[in-house]
């Protein structure tokens, strides 16, 4: 579909771009405590904002592309490597690998725009809006608890849940992808702040336990 020359050119441009938290890459490596709590940026994930009534016709058409739309706060519907997060009763965030973006040969968000057609709703490419920080390890929830008022106890906050909330005093989406793994989506301009905030919160786990 896409013009091959244009695609090659686009891929070349991609190698030059910098992700919002790229400045902190070595700091994330240095600040991570292997097996305890680790932090990295997962750059350039494909994201699309969907605003549509999930019960309407347009909602059904979009759902057919995404593998359904979540129906309640916290819910994430995954289909292969693509996930749709509930942000509001008529607002969703689609998250897919970087290669899924049309500029890298993928189909997003073009396929969604095509599915919506002239139906009531909105599909916006938000891939540059937020970046993704991934926090993993047995201490990950303890780090988050320093600046997130949600109940993160494993009995309550289970893998496969995503909530739009505040972390370290800034708005962010928190998605628990596995028992000890969180993906955090801060807006690009907050990425460095949140990255530094998390590093600071992780620092205590780098020191040896006082007997």
């Amino acid at each position: 579909m896409a013009d091959t020359a244009a695609l090659e050119n686009s891929k070349k441009i991609q190698t030059l771009r910098k992700s919002p938290a790229s400045l902190l890459r070595t700091a994330f490596e240095a600040g991570s405590v292997a097996g305890t709590v680790e932090l990295r940026e997962v750059p350039f994930l494909t994201m699309a904002g969907l605003r549509v009534d999930p019960a309407g016709e347009a909602g059904e058409r979009l759902g057919a592309v995404t593998g359904g739309l979540p129906s309640a706060s916290g819910e994430v519907l995954s289909s292969g490597d693509t996930a749709v997060l509930w942000l509001g009763p008529a607002e969703f965030l689609l998250v897919a690998p970087a290669e899924s973006h049309e500029s890298l040969g993928g189909e997003l968000p073009r396929a969604l725009i095509a599915a919506l057609a002239d139906g009531q709703g909105q599909v916006v490419d938000l891939s540059a809006n937020r970046t993704t920080l991934e926090l993993t390890g047995p201490r990950a929830s303890a780090v988050l608890e320093k600046g997130c008022a949600l109940d993160l106890h494993p009995r309550v906050f289970k893998p496969g849940t995503a909530l739009s909330t505040e972390i370290g005093g800034i708005p962010a989406i928190l998605w628990k992808t596995a028992e000890e793994t969180y993906r955090i989506f801060p807006r690009a301009s907050f990425a460095e702040f949140l990255g530094r905030w998390l590093l600071d919160a992780m620092r205590e786990y780098a020191s040896t336990e006082v007997p």
Binding site: A72, G74, W86, D151, T161, L163
Partner: peptide
Amino acid sequence: PVSPEGAI
């Protein structure tokens, strides 16, 4: 109707 708990 929905709490973080309820949602999951």
